[in-house]
Each structure stands twice: as structure tokens, then as C-alpha cells.
Design a protein around this nucleic acid. Structure first.
Length: 578
DNA sequence: CACGCAACTGG
DNA sequence: CTCGAGT
DNA sequence: ACTCGAGACAGTTGCGTG
């Protein structure tokens, strides 16, 4: 298939929001492709080169892609950036700048190979090499194809389709689409490789998919939890259920195969090399030849038995200096699920059975330990368990339906989380002053505003220090209205009373106050709120707007740096009181 | 070695 | 995380 | 009510560059 044909389909897909139409288009697309192209096509539609666990990435961001477009179009990089700020999509910028091009001979396979080649470019000079190669590729395509190649390089196809949509589309081309969907979905959830599934189906027929099984070494798509705001609602939904502590660490799926161990992240990236201590503990403590176990890796203070906060744990996600880190911050793996043991698929068993089997194969005393849990039908008891966990510094709890199997790839109410932040929402709302805004990308660029740079008031210096960028919580209408209001106070230069290391696309005179909800306050290298000599300030974690502009508040009525300091201190105390 | 950028995590 | 669109 | 996709955030490490 020519790449141009694929680009035409992408354009049609982009042009509709109707799911049913998308299924039609995708069905046609795959039907027209050569069987050998199926896997490539699937990955391209997903906006990636290979499944996550293959570890192959293009390795280009906005800046580098902008450079490639500049080279291909023979214009200054500044010109590309300026157009990007207006359009919010580098793909459209490339299309615009390459308008006169007529080339269209490239095939899908050639384009795919070229992008794989870019991904494999590494070592000295590779940055320039990637830009040159992408520029060369853009030179061989039509303007329309360039749009999608650019978006692909950035990993944002913006077509409104993902794996589930592709699966549904392919299933619909089958006579028994319900059954086809179940088979495809199951195969995908077990192997996490959409290209492999669709190619197998195309080459060997749909029945071949029933031969897919959980295989040690192949990551299984993880089951995720939904969220509810209270213990009552959880009990109303689940009745008698298991309630597990939720730790603030990194979710791991561990595969043991004799003496070999593989560890995968939540998004199925291979993380084996980062956690040698967990790999060793697995070998020592798991009484099975083969097993797939899930748990949360958390850095632990061995002297006190306390868990460290997320920011300490995440330091273990590294390539170098792992041994030293492992000595300083050893990890515990708090396990909560069992998917496979010695030739037997456990995913179809109920929660209770899996949990018992899990406890059965973990030898006591070591870094691998089953998560703490209770079983209850009482909202009160659930609440008390939650409070106790939060008291101990845990993130909250996760309630699980007792008879639920492990539904790979699903996010539903069989697992429900109740999180710390929901306990004291009001405790952590902050009134911030808007000091600037960013233009936003993609759909947000339509409004010309995608995020706010916000600050709190420093009484001592009578200035505004940045504390967060906020890009969540407003409706489309809210963004539009806000932009109109802010543009009346837009200024060319950073206002004198604003202290900021970040530079927004548009500076705004400090005037409007807006209420923001956040999960917690963290130390920040970029924000100037409560900044010390070393340049470390304070920032809001997971900020989102609640409500709209506080007309009743002047900028000096915003939350003060002093108040933020206090909130940070309180938070610290709460964490320590375990 | 400092810096900018990219890719990943978390929610 | 939040929002919006479709079913 | 549910599913899906897009677009935001802060913070971390690692790479390539100059």
C-alpha cells in the first residue's frame, strides 16, 4: 500500500468523531492492506513503531521535529515554531510549508522502515542525524503524508483512535463480530502486541487467536481500578469486599522463568535492569519455577521498616549507579496479585483464590511480601482501615470484588480506589493568581490557550511567585471565556512584580484569582514559591481548576507564600506521624 | 560539566 | 488528573 | 452509565551537545 493511501484514511479518520464511521474506515483500511503489512499498519495506527516492551522509540520531540521540518522546507526553525504556536500542531505546519511538493511514491513499508531507522540512530551526532533523516523522509512525501509522518514522529497522531477502536473495527469485519471482538481483545490483553494479534488473525484466521495464552516473559496488560469518593459508595457498589493498602510506588509485573526474571512497568516497559534486588528476592522467595506476580515496588528504610515517599522510590528508575542506589534505598515488592504459576493461568480465577495461591508461593521474611488487607462489608470498617493506612503514609486503599477474575487490560469497578487527596479536598485548595498562559496544543490550540501559569502572593516582597502550571479542570467554554478576559491584561514583558523562571507564551498582568485543587505540595526545581538559596521552591502536585475566576478577590488576596509554607509543613508532619 | 531535550512515572 | 464525544 | 481518546501537570534520569 502506498503511504499516501494510508494518509488519506488518516485524514478521513481525523475528520470524523463518529465511532461507527471510524470502524468502517479502519475496517476498509486493513482489508485493503497486504497481509504482510498488517502488523506495521496496526502499530502506525497506534502511533508507535512496536509494542512498548520492545523498547524502541523514535526519540524526537517538538524541537527536533521542528528542525527537521525547517530543513525539509528550507525555512528558518523560528518560522516553524512561530507557525506551531498559531496552529498547535506541527503536522499541519509541515503540511503548510511543504504545500508545493508533489512526491507520493513512498510505500507504507518504506515509510515504516525509514522511521525505524530514525529510532535506531544513536550515539554522537545522532540528534542531527535524526533531524536529517526525518527531513529526507518529509522530502519524499506529499504534504498530507508529511502531516502524519510528523505527528507520528511526535507520537501524537490525534486521530481519535487507539487499540480498542482498532480492535472493534477489525472485529466488525468478521461474521460473528461479538465473538471476534472477544477473541481479539483476549489475545491482545495477553500479549500486549496488537500487530502480532492482527497479523496472526490475517494470516492464520481468527481461530488461531484462541491458541494465544499467557506466556511467562510476555507482559500481560494490567488490570486497573476505578475511583470513588467515599467508603459508603464503595460498599454500596461492592458489598463485602477485600480492602488492600495502596502504596505510593511503581507498579510492577514480575515474570519468573526458572532463574530468569523480567520486570515490567504499568505501561509494560521493560524495567528488569533497574531492580536487581527485586529480581534476586523473587528468585529467593517464590516457591515456583514459573510465575507472574504483580505488586508495588516501594523504597524501604530497612532500619525502621518505613516506606519512603514516591520521589525516593522513583530514583530507582535509572540506568546507571543502580547498585549504589539499591544499597542506599532498597526496594520492597508489596505483592497483591498472581496471574500465572507453573503452566497454569490464574487470571480466570476469583480474587480470593488468586490471593490464597499468592500467599502460598511466597516464602516468608524478605523483600517480597503480600499487601496488608482486610475483608469487610462495612463502610465504617473500610473507612477505619483507610484512615489507618493514610496515617501510616499510604496513598489510600483499593477495594476489590471478591469474585472478580483478573481482567487483563480492564479498568472497571471490580477494583475501586479511594485516595488520600479525597479525604481533605478543601484542605488543599489554593487561590492562585494568573500571571500568564500557554497557547496549548492540538484541540486546545483552537482556543489559543492550553494552560495557565499561576502564582501565589509573597507579602514580604509584594510580589507573585509561581507555584504551578494548570491545564486541567476548565471546560472548553471556560477556556474561551478566560482567554478573552486575560487578553485584556496581556503584556509584552514579564510584569515587574512577577517572579518566574518559566516563560509562558503570553504574560498577563496579575489580576485574576482562580481556585485550584491539588493533591499535595512538592519541592520544585522550577517554581519560585518559597524558593531557597539552592533554587528549590514549592509546587502543587496534580493541580486542577475548580470553579471560575474569583471576582471577589484581588491578587493580593490570593494564598500567600507563607500559607503554602505552612501547608507544606503540615503535610510533612502528617506523613511523619506514622 | 552544565544545559536542553526526550521519555518515562505518577495521578 | 479532567474534559468531551459517542453509543 | 460507560468507554474511549486527548490534553494538561510535576518530577525523575539519561543522552547528546558545546
Amino acid at each position: 500500500m502506498r503511504f499516501e493511501t494510508l494518509a488519506e484514511y488518516f485524514e478521513k479518520l481525523e475528520g470524523t468523531t463518529e465511532r461507527l464511521r471510524m470502524y468502517e474506515l479502519l475496517g476498509q483500511l486493513f482489508a485493503r492492506a497486504d497481509p504482510e503489512e498488517t502488523a506495521e499498519l496496526a502499530y502506525l495506527c497506534e502511533g508507535r513503531l512496536l509494542p512498548a516492551f520492545a523498547g524502541v522509540e523514535i526519540g524526537m520531540g517538538e524541537r527536533l521535529v521542528a528542525r527537521a521540518i525547517a530543513i525539509a522546507a528550507g525555512v528558518e526553525e523560528r518560522e516553524v515554531i512561530a507557525r506551531y504556536k498559531r496552529l498547535g500542531d506541527l503536522g499541519s505546519v509541515a503540511e503548510e510549508l511543504l504545500k508545493s511538493r508533489r512526491q507520493r511514491g513512498l510505500t507504507v513499508t518504506q515509510a515504516y522502515a525509514a522511521m525505524l531507522e530514525i529510532a535506531r540512530t544513536s550515539g554522537p551526532g545522532s540528534v542531527e542525524g535524526k533531524a536529517q533523516k526525518l527531513a529526507a523522509l518529509l522530502g519524499r512525501t506529499s504534504p498530507r503524508a508529511a502531516r502524519y509522518i510528523v505527528r507520528f514522529a511526535l507520537g501524537r497522531m490525534r486521530l481519535g483512535i487507539g487499540a480498542p477502536t482498532i480492535i472493534e473495527a477489525i472485529a466488525r469485519t468478521s461474521d460473528d463480530s461479538k465473538r471476534a471482538r472477544a477473541l481479539i481483545e483476549r489475545a491482545y490483553n495477553l500479549c500486549s502486541d496488537l500487530g502480532l494479534v492482527l497479523r496472526t488473525m490475517r494470516e492464520q484466521g481468527i481461530e488461531a487467536l484462541s491458541r494465544f495464552h499467557v506466556r511467562v516473559g510476555n507482559p500481560v496488560r494490567m488490570m486497573l481500578a476505578e475511583r470513588l469518593p467515599s467508603a459508603e459508595e464503595i460498599i454500596a457498589r461492592l458489598g463485602r469486599c477485600a480492602v488492600e493498602a495502596k502504596l505510593d510506588g511503581l507498579r510492577c509485573q514480575v515474570h519468573l522463568n526458572d532463574e530468569r526474571v523480567e520486570i515490567f512497568s504499568r505501561n509494560l516497559e521493560r524495567m528488569t535492569g533497574m531492580f536487581p534486588d527485586i529480581a534476586e528476592a523473587i528468585k529467593a522467595q517464590v516457591a515456583a519455577r514459573q510465575a507472574i506476580i504483580e505488586g508495588e515496588a516501594v523504597a524501604i528504610n530497612e532500619a525502621t521498616g518505613e516506606f519512603y515517599p514516591f520521589q525516593v522510590t522513583v530514583k530507582r528508575k535509572r540506568k546507571h549507579g543502580i547498585e549504589e542506589m539499591a544499597r542506599e534505598f532498597p526496594l520492597a515488592l508489596v505483592v497483591f496479585d498472581l496471574l500465572y504459576v507453573d503452566g497454569r493461568d490464574y487470571t480466570e480465577l476469583a480474587y480470593q483464590a488468586r490471593r490464597e495461591a499468592l500467599e502460598g508461593i511466597i516464602k516468608k521474611a524478605g523483600r517480597i511480601r503480600p499487601v496488608e488487607r482486610i475483608i469487610t462489608a462495612s463502610a465504617d470498617e473500610l473507612q477505619r482501615f483507610f484512615d489507618a493506612q493514610v496515617e501510616r503514609g499510604m496513598e489510600g486503599i483499593i477495594a476489590k470484588r471478591l469474585d472478580s477474575p483478573y481482567l487483563a487490560g480492564a479498568r472497571n469497578f471490580n477494583w475501586i480506589k479511594l485516595k488520600r487527596a479525597y479525604r481533605g479536598q478543601l484542605e488543599d485548595t489554593v487561590d492562585v493568581v494568573i500571571v500568564g498562559y500557554l497557547r496549548g496544543r492540538g484541540a486546545r490550540a483552537r482556543f489559543g490557550i492550553g494552560a495557565l501559569l499561576t502564582a501565589v502572593y509573597d507579602r514580604e516582597r509584594d510580589s507573585f511567585c509561581t507555584i504551578a502550571k494548570v491545564g486541567s479542570g476548565l471546560s472548553d467554554e471556560g477556556w474561551t471565556r478566560l482567554r478573552e478576559m486575560l487578553d485584556r491584561y496581556a503584556v509584552e514583558e514579564k510584569p515587574a512584580r512577577v517572579e518566574s523562571r518559566l516563560v509562558p507564551d503570553v504574560w498577563v498582568e496579575p489580576r485574576y484569582v482562580i481556585t485550584v485543587l491539588a493533591d499535595e505540595i512538592t519541592r520544585s526545581p522550577v517554581h519560585t514559591c518559597a524558593q531557597d538559596e539552592s533554587g528549590t521552591g514549592l509546587a502543587l502536585r496534580f493541580p486542577r481548576v475548580v470553579g471560575f475566576i474569583r471576582e471577589d478577590k484581588a491578587p493580593e488576596d490570593a494564598t500567600t507564600v507563607e500559607e503554602i509554607r505552612e501547608m507544606y509543613a503540615t503535610q510533612k508532619r502528617q506523613k511523619l506521624s506514622s
